[in-house]
Amino acid sequence: MIRVAHVTKYRGRQAVLKDVSFEIPAGASLALIGPGGCGKTLLTKIIGGLVRPDQGEVWVDGQEITRLSEIELTRVRFKIGMLFQNYALFDFMDVGDNIAFPLRQEGKLDEEEIASQVEAILKEVDLPGIERLQVNELSGGMKRRVTFARAVIRRPPILVYDDPTAGLDPVTSSKIFILLDRLQRQGATTSITISHDLVGLRSICTKWAMLVAGEVVFFGTSEEIERSPTKVVRQFWMGESDEV
C-alpha cells in the first residue's frame, strides 16, 4: 500500500533523512518511533506529498508520487487522512467547519448529511456539541481531538497520525487509541502512527519502524522489536539512557 524507497532529504548540506526504505502492506498499521528531531514528521509529510524528497521514490496505493504535480497529487491525497502534530486547525473557521472541511472539499454529501457526521464524530471523541466554538477557545487536548476528528471524518483508506495523544490525559489518550483500533478494524485502513506512548502503540500496531537521525535502525514486527539486539533500539524500548 505504501512503499518508501531510498528516500533522502537534505537541509542545506546536511541529510535529515538518509536512504529510508520500507514497505507497509495494505491493512497493516505501522508505529513510527524515534527520538525528537529524527525526521518522523518530515517522513510523513513526504508520504503525503507535502514535501518532495531530494532522492528516492514513494509509492502510495500503487502510484509513484514524488514527481506528480500538485493537481495530480490531489487524487492521491483524497486517499489519505492526516493528523498534524501541531494541530494545523484553520483558525478562520469554527470547530464544525474545520471538521466538515474534508467532506465539503470532497463534495459528495449534502450539508445535512455533513452536519450529522460532524455531530457523530464529535460525540465519539467526547466533545459533543462544540461545533460553533472558535479554534482559539479550545484547550490543547481539545484541539488534538478535533484534529483527530478532521483527519478521520472522510474514512480514508490511509491514515497518518502524528502524535495523536500528545498533551492528553491518560484516560483520554487510551480512548483515542481504542478509537484508532476500532477505525483500523472497521475500515481495513492502512495507518502510520507516530507516538512516544509505546504502550498505546503496542495495543494497535502490527509493524514497527524506528528512525534515529534520519536513518531506519529498525523495521519489523512487535515480537522482533521486543527482542531486538540493537543497542539504540533496546534502550529506546526500555527507556534507558547511557548514563545509568
Binding site: I71, R77, F84, F90, D91
Partner: peptide
C-alpha cells in the same frame, strides 16, 4: 502564519490548492 502553523499543509492534504 497559516503556513508556519501548517494550516496550508492541512489545506493541501484535503486536496485544496
Amino acid at each position: 502564519s497559516m503556513v508556519v502553523t501548517e494550516q496550508v499543509d492541512a489545506l493541501r492534504m484535503n486536496a485544496t490548492q
